[in-house]
């Protein structure tokens, strides 16, 4: 597909944006909800990258996390449960010049929208996907989600969840064409910012799972991880996330992890205790679907006319009389 000429024009003057240029309304999330931390990091990213608000779209599905676009002063698309990814793909296909972000929850992405998740990885369109994973359905009031730990008591599993939790990282890392996978936690905002920033700069679909707290339904679930820095495994690498000296004093459990090593990424991703935090995998050479599908040349009425007439020619039957003196088929 091609772009309209107006999309190619550059603005010849500078614009600077402040945080307020990206802030809209007062978030209705609970105090202490991890969504607030993600919002703060993303608004900061928009400001630091000076993203033009009108050129930026946040797409979400349904759930607590999917309220996200309402709090951004950009374009937003708060659609239907599970379908944020295909909507975002359509937007990116039509307008590759837009910055496309997707905010989706563990129910939205890993349950009702799971088919789209797998295929979005495969399409590898250039967008940043944030999986807000609080391991519970929040908006519908506490039902087990696919990422709920086994044994978790919820309204639909009063005697404890029956199944082992699905690991979104290993699933994503198992899909052909995967190009960026990272994990962040809401209680280390500095690293979360660095990861989302790296995800934004990656060309292709960057998948960031953000393990976040749900103070309303699961206030104690992640407490052991919060209180014990040893239960966090920070992944650091000169090509990935660099840990600041102050953070390094708290988090001693660190590993040098090369983000180009897929096998090691899969192995590392499978753990939750300690929980790996950092960029697990990055491959900038995977082609993006929107580029594979882009035809050369500008789309014009004349081009459509020529294409259409060529097709009509294939199907035209000239009645004998008309054929005399008519152009050859």
């Amino acid at each position: 597909m091609t772009s309209a000429a107006t999309e190619c024009l550059l603005r010849m003057y500078d614009e600077h944006h402040e945080l307020e240029d990206y802030q809209s309304g007062v978030p209705r999330w609970c105090t202490g909800c991890g969504d607030n931390a993600i919002l703060a990091a993303v608004q900061r990213l928009c400001r630091d990258e000076d993203l033009r608000p009108e050129k930026t779209v946040f797409v979400s599905g349904i759930g607590c996390s999917s309220r996200f676009p309402h709090y951004m002063k950009t374009y937003g698309f708060h659609g239907i449960h599970g379908r944020a990814l295909p909507v975002a793909e359509g937007i990116k296909m039509a307008r590759p010049d837009l910055n496309v972000f997707v905010n989706t929850g563990d129910g939205d992405c890993c349950s009702i929208g799971a088919a789209h998740w797998i295929h979005a990885i495969r399409y590898n369109m250039n967008m940043t996907v944030m999986l807000h994973d609080n391991q519970i359905y929040g908006l519908t009031k506490m039902q087990a989600s696919p990422t709920s730990p086994k044994g978790l008591k919820s309204n639909t599993t009063p005697r404890g969840a029956y199944l082992e939790a699905l690991n979104p990282l290993t699933v994503t890392l198992g899909v052909q064409n995967v190009s960026f996978v990272a994990q962040a936690v809401d209680w280390i905002p500095e690293v979360m910012y660095d990861i989302i920033s790296a995800a934004f700069h990656h060309k292709g679909l960057s998948f960031v799972r953000i393990v976040q707290r749900c103070p309303e339904w699961l206030p104690k679930l992640l407490e052991p991880w919060l209180h014990d820095p040893e239960k966090v495994l920070l992944l650091e690498h000169e090509d990935a996330i660099r840990i600041s000296p102050s953070l390094a004093q708290v988090y001693k459990n660190r590993r040098r992890h090369d983000p180009s090593d897929l096998d090691r990424a899969r192995e590392t991703a499978s753990g939750f205790d300690p929980i790996p935090v950092g960029i697990l995998y990055r491959n900038p050479r995977v082609p993006c679907y929107e580029e594979l599908r882009t035809a050369a040349g500008l789309r014009s009425t004349e081009r459509i006319r020529k294409g259409l007439e060529a097709e009509f020619d294939k199907f035209t039957v000239w009645p004998q009389q008309a054929a005399e003196g008519a152009p050859a088929e």
Binding site: E89, G90, A115, R293, K306, G307
Partner: peptide, 22 residues
Amino acid sequence: KVGGVVHQAEDEIAACAFAIGA
């Protein structure tokens, strides 16, 4: 040939959602 794209989506729902996005 005229700058269009046929996107074969992963399912009917995705096809409709993709169309809505575009």
